[in-house]
């Protein structure tokens, strides 16, 4: 039909920039990266096909790969839940009983907005240094601090604390979600003399479950991709003793320091699969704990 043709023509005209980007910058590179992951490629010669060698090496002989997995999972498992708990607690505190929350909301959100910047990573490096602010505060209460960043067993926690400090964005989403819970549910519970905890478990959490789920998926993806703070705080090395070697820093160094592009591509694909797996896991379990309001039981 001529009509359909004309409609398609104008539709695709508007879609052209995105389509170009989609093929040249997203789907194309993903496929090329899959191909490169089966090769040896140092950017000087052509890629040389090596089959599964990169993956076999990664899983069986590369100790640093396991180390980077350990560091990254450690980070994700602490940073995501703690950030979400912080965000929800503060959102609930702001949601009820206060007339003006604008200024608090702004103050709590500001770190999220600045957090990705190099300036903040530089600041963090100093706050947790041996003679930094954190140790001075500890000294006031009589605790002898350590060099939080130079000590391999504590350095990852400086990153986790940085992540918690930036709870502002999920807090805003929780606030919007809390606003959407009908007030009469709480009033009815009040008349029945329901306790605060019960109100939280029986009303707030179930009503908020879709928002919690949304935040959870978003934060997991976000956390696996952490790069700049780890890179800056460890001065690009991932050290001390690889304790800040989060996945993306390892990948970056393999690709752009040692030019092992094939191996780095394999690392990238494994990252993609890990993130996909976690997202799928969240979706798969969601039917047990997330119920949408318009859904029939």
């Amino acid at each position: 039909m001529k009509n359909t043709k004309a409609r398609n023509a104008s539709g695709y005209m508007f879609l052209t920039p995105w389509l170009l980007g989609f093929f040249l910058l997203a789907i194309g590179p993903i496929l090329v990266s899959l191909y490169l992951s089966f090769t040896r490629y140092d950017m000087v010669g052509d890629p040389r096909w090596t089959g599964f060698d990169n993956y076999i090496y990664m899983f069986t002989r590369d100790r640093r790969f396991w180390k980077t997995l350990e560091v990254t999972f450690h980070y994700v498992l602490f940073a995501v839940p703690l950030r979400l708990i912080m965000a929800l607690s503060v959102a609930m505190l702001l949601d009820k009983g206060l007339r003006t929350i604008g200024l608090y909301r702004a103050i709590f959100y500001l770190p999220s907005l600045l957090g990705a910047s190099i300036a903040i990573a530089i600041l963090w490096r100093q706050l947790f240094s041996i003679d930094g602010v954190v140790n001075q505060v500890l000294a006031v209460v009589g605790i002898q601090g350590v060099g939080w960043i130079t000590n391999p067993s504590t350095s990852i926690y400086t990153l986790i604390i940085l992540a918690i400090w930036q709870f502002g964005a999920p807090m805003l989403i929780f606030l919007a979600g809390l606003r959407g819970i009908p007030r009469d549910l709480y009033e009815a519970a009040d008349i029945d003399g329901t306790s605060r905890f019960r109100k939280f478990y029986a009303i707030t959490l179930p009503m908020l479950a879709p928002v919690v789920f949304f935040n959870l998926v978003l934060q997991i993806i976000e956390a696996f991709k952490i790069f700049s703070p780890a890179f800056i705080i460890s001065n690009g090395t991932g050290g001390p003793a690889d304790s800040l070697l989060v996945y993306t820093v390892y990948l970056f160094n393999e690709a752009f320091k040692f030019f092992r592009m094939g191996y780095a591509s394999a690392l990238a694909w494994v990252l993609l699969l890990i993130i996909g797996l976690f997202t799928a896991l969240a979706f798969a379990t969601s039917k047990y704990w997330v119920h949408y309001e318009n859904e029939r039981d």
């Binding site: 989609f22 040249l24 993806i221």
Partner: peptide, 24 residues
């Protein structure tokens, strides 16, 4: 279809497309 694909690209970590983009 394209809208679905667009939403999927939101999930892709930049690091996965980085190397081929760099080569290009």
């Amino acid at each position: 279809l394209f809208f679905g694909l667009m939403m999927m690209t939101l999930m892709i970590p930049y690091h996965v497309v980085l190397i081929p983009q760099y080569v290009m």
